[in-house]
Amino acid sequence: MRMKPSRNLLLGLCSILALGFLYYSSGRINIRGWSHNSLYDKQGFLLKLDRQPLELMYKYGNLSEGACKPGFAAAKMTAIYPKFTKLAPMFLDPNYKRFSKIGDYSPPFGVKSQEKIVDILLSATQNYGLGEELDSTYCKTCIIVGNGGILANKSLGSRIDEFDVVVRLNEAPVKGFEKDVGSKTTMRITYPEGAIQKTERYETQSLFVLSAFKALDFKWLRHMVFNQRLRSTDGFWKSVARYVPREPSDMRILNPYFIQEASFKLIGLPHNNGQMGRGNIPTLGTVAITMALHNCDEVAVAGFGYNMSTPYAPLHYYEKIRMSAIKESWTHNISKEKEFLLKLVKAGVIQDRTNGICGAGC
């Protein structure tokens, strides 16, 4: 004999179906309300930057004061940006083609159509790291020294020199400014138009690192590596260095993945079909910070941040140009870039030694 389902069972099934429908419907109406995505902004960063895992406090809280914290920057970055992955070497090496992401894009976001000249350059330099001592250092502290006028009269030089890796940008001088900016330079990241032109202004020892923003930059580096005369400067937007007083073994090519990641993922600049366009190129300082997050255990910055409310303040620490000289940039989006850097400072991913990124806001 067939058993009839009980009235209570039918009521229970109906209730479950009704609740499921309501859950599904409300999710369709306001999917963010039911999803963990509501915890993150559109770039994938945690909205509440103070909500970070307790295990980080337990892992690093017992270390002695001043001791380098292994993996700290990457751990903090992953806590606020779960999509972060650490495997991205500073410089291109002969195995760079394993990074399909850079093979898919032309400069500045990749090396597409430039593989032949990159191979020539890498075979000439034959070195692809920071050097034997630093490459074998278990825990590396890095500082990116920006060129901002905020560095002036801060007497941070000796503290900057305490870092394992000191990164400088473009032609910012050291000689004569040691009290404020230090005397140590591990690497100087630049591009043809930003490179030091007077050879006597180069440090006696440092890595010369090219950040290529266009195909022509690789050709320029070939002239520098092979010490060839640069016959023409057509295609450059201003004068360029014609000689770099460095051996090929001290020259490197910055991994263009950092430009790509900073622009499209971290800051959220226009993709523009993977081509350089209006407002989609990060500043070299932010590119250097992105590089450090992947390769350094602790990351600090100094000399970052422009305060537009002080138009008569010096723009750079080494010259008298005022803040008011800043014009709207065609290639950069300074406001969006600052939003990104603020996240890093507020979450403690990086330390800002001159407090120029937050000002009084942190």
Rank of each mutant, 00 (worst) to 15 (best):
Arg98Tyr: 05
Ile196Arg: 05
Phe84Gly: 10
Met187Asn: 04
Leu151His: 01
Ser123Glu: 13
Met291Glu: 11
Cys142Gly: 00
Pro314Trp: 08
Leu342Phe: 01
Gly305Asp: 07
Thr141Ser: 15
Tyr317Phe: 14
Ala67Asp: 15
Cys142Ile: 00
Gly235Ala: 01
Ile31Asn: 03
Ile196Glu: 09
Ala292Asp: 14
Leu22Cys: 10
Leu254Lys: 01
Phe258Val: 02
Gly129Asn: 10
Thr286Glu: 07
Leu344Asn: 15
Thr185Pro: 00
Tyr312Arg: 09
Leu293Asp: 07
Asn307Tyr: 00
Asn62Tyr: 14
Gln205Ser: 09
Leu87Lys: 12
Phe218Leu: 11
Val301Gln: 05
Leu134His: 08
Thr233Pro: 00
Ala288Trp: 04
Ala300Asn: 05
Leu122Asp: 04
Lys4Gly: 08
Gly182His: 05
Gly194Ser: 09
Cys362Met: 03
Ala215Pro: 00
Glu178Val: 10
Gly148Asn: 13
Leu47Ser: 13
Lys140Val: 05
Leu130Trp: 11
Leu207Thr: 09
Leu207Arg: 07
Arg229Gln: 14
Ser158Tyr: 06
Cys14Lys: 04
His294Asp: 06
Leu151Trp: 02
Leu130Lys: 03
Lys327Ala: 11
Arg32Gly: 05
Asn30Trp: 11
Leu122Ala: 01
Ala152Asp: 10
Phe264Thr: 08
Leu269Cys: 08
His223Tyr: 12
Leu47Gly: 00
Pro256Gln: 06
Cys358Gly: 10
Gly235Cys: 01
Ile281Ala: 05
Arg201Phe: 15
Val240Ala: 09
Gly27Lys: 04
Gly277Met: 06
Leu17Glu: 00
Val181Phe: 15
Asn37Ile: 05
Leu130His: 12
Lys101Gly: 07
Ile144Phe: 04
Gly110Met: 00
Glu319Val: 06
Leu169Met: 07
Ile150Arg: 03
